[in-house]
């Protein structure tokens, strides 16, 4: 079968004149000597002649013109490529403009809808929630002390000092949860300052200790300075400053060590009394626990509840009265009481 295919291929090539001279001669000899191959050759020759005689069709009329017209159209289109690109750019620009216009219209429509449907009261809230703005804490109370500029205080005329010296008499009452420890500390301070010997009386009762001592003003200041270490052990402290009227005291509640020191450092009686009065008033004012009134309210900035503490202003002019009181005798009573 393979041989027959090969022979057919050779015969076809022979008929088509595609063989070289040697193969051509071999095929010719084969055709002459083999009747079957001869018949096949005749058949192939006839077929080839028939196919060669098949009529050739000509291109339809106007074929060339049609092709050139198409080519011209292609050339025209190619030449207008830049215009096409420009057109495309223009189209894209128009579309973008349209989209932008639509967005603007939508935004305007949104504003109108917002204006119509959202109540005015809720607008700020809504806007804040949209833009995640932190809302300022709402003030639910009026400030107990209005923030007003302190008025110019005219100089208070202070009466001229009396020539007679009124001794410093102070009673310091310390309320504590640990009276023993406080007592021990006071004892140690008295020992360290060398005033233990000047203690005229020490009364120890259940839940209370009382020290009474007479000393110089400097020693007293020294002692009070040292006593500042006792304050952390105390829950409350009260200072009573003696006046010129016997048995009458100016009571300063919730006094601090520094305040005690300041009062006792006063140059003279008048200043001392005035300072004691002022500090007493300040402490009384700050002792009002305003926060208790609002503690039930939630979400309130606690700092805002605190009233402004009154302070002694520098404008309050006082006449500086100088006197040498370093040798002034003082009387100090310290009471330690269990709370």
């Amino acid at each position: 079968m393979k041989d027959m295919e090969l022979i057919e291929e050779l015969l076809n090539s022979y008929i088509d004149g595609e063989l070289d001279e040697r193969k051509n001669n071999e095929v010719k000899r084969l055709i002459d000597n083999d009747k079957q191959i001869r018949r096949l050759f005749d058949s192939l020759s006839r077929y080839k002649k028939l196919m060669g005689a098949v009529a050739s069709d000509k291109a339809p009329e106007g074929f060339c013109e049609s092709v050139t017209k198409h080519l011209e159209r292609h050339i025209l289109l190619a030449d207008t490529g830049e215009y096409h690109r420009a057109g495309k750019r223009h189209l894209v620009l128009r579309r973008l403009t349209t989209v932008a216009a639509v967005l603007v219209l939508l935004a305007m429509l949104g504003i109108v809808v917002f204006d119509i449907f959202v109540p005015k009261a809720d607008r700020q809230k809504l806007v804040n929630s949209v833009f995640e703005r932190k809302e300022k804490p709402q003030v639910l109370y009026e400030k107990p002390f209005a923030e007003v500029k302190p008025a110019e205080i005219e100089a208070i005329p202070v009466p001229a000092p009396k020539t007679t010296t009124i001794p410093l008499v102070v009673k310091l009452t310390l309320m504590t949860d640990s009276p023993v420890e406080t007592d021990w500390l006071i004892g140690k301070v008295l020992t360290n300052t060398g005033l233990f010997d000047k203690t005229t009386a020490v009364e120890r009762n259940t839940g209370s200790v009382k020290y009474v001592l007479n000393c110089s003003s400097d020693s007293l200041l020294n002692l009070l300075g040292e006593l500042s270490f006792v304050w952390p052990k105390c829950t409350d402290a009260t200072l009573e400053v003696g006046t010129e009227q016997a048995g009458k005291y100016i009571t300063v509640n919730s006094v601090t060590a520094q305040q005690v020191l300041d009062i006792c450092k006063a140059d003279n009686y008048t200043q001392r009394v005035r300072m004691a009065n002022d500090i007493a008033m300040i402490n009384a004012a700050t002792a009002v626990d305003v926060s208790k009134q609002y503690v039930a309210k939630d979400n309130i900035d606690y700092d805002l509840l605190m009233p402004n503490k009154p302070v002694l202003t520098a404008t309050e002019k006082t006449e500086q009265l100088k006197s040498d009181n370093t040798l002034e005798q003082t009387n100090l009573t310290i009471m330690v009481i269990r709370k």
Partner: peptide, 27 residues
């Protein structure tokens, strides 16, 4: 085009067997 149009058209027609298709393909 004029030189080869008939031969191209004829060959295509003999291959595809349809005159309209042959004209379009030749073009």
């Amino acid at each position: 085009i004029l030189k080869y149009q008939d031969r191209i058209y004829n060959t295509i027609l003999k291959l595809c067997g349809n005159e309209a298709d042959a004209a379009e393909l030749a073009q």
